[in-house]
Amino acid sequence: MTALACARVRVLLEAYVDGDLAQTEPDTARAVRDHLVTCTDCRRQHQQAVSLPFRMKALRSPAPPASLVAGVMSSIAPQSQTSRAAWALLVPEALLGAFILWYVSGLDGLTALASGAWSNLQGLAFWGSGTAPLPSVPVADVLLLGAFIALTAIAAYHLSLLAKLDQIATPRFSEHRGA
């Protein structure tokens, strides 16, 4: 068996200390042991390697601050506020939806709305090309358009709130996984 150089021994020390070297390379482990008998510097390194895991396990940390748990719980608590806001949005959405439904009043209303919108667009196109005056749009149509834009904006905001809620409160909707 060839003698090992100090540099080689020091690379192997941790595997030697853990017993891994004796399992994978028993001859090398014996060579390390023999080297440690004769080399004072490597023996000191070996002692350091043996004591290191114990020193690390003995490391002390400060106690967590008393406010930590309360801080965590308040960080996850705002979901109830968000939840109330999300539900409250249903009211204007329902009102706007009811107004649009009342105006459209079924399939006939939808057809009338589509043809009205088409003629309005045509009128705008003619006005744009300079062949016709600016078309007069009924006030109800303008109101409907405003209601539709408002409904779309509120619904988009509502969806973003619900997505946030879903991200925060997923544990509440996953009881089956805990079974």
Partner: peptide
């Protein structure tokens, strides 16, 4: 920034 709790050190046991 935050109050230190009474127990000074905590070994991992």
């Amino acid at each position: 920034m935050h109050a230190q709790a009474a127990a000074p050190t905590l070994p991992m046991t």
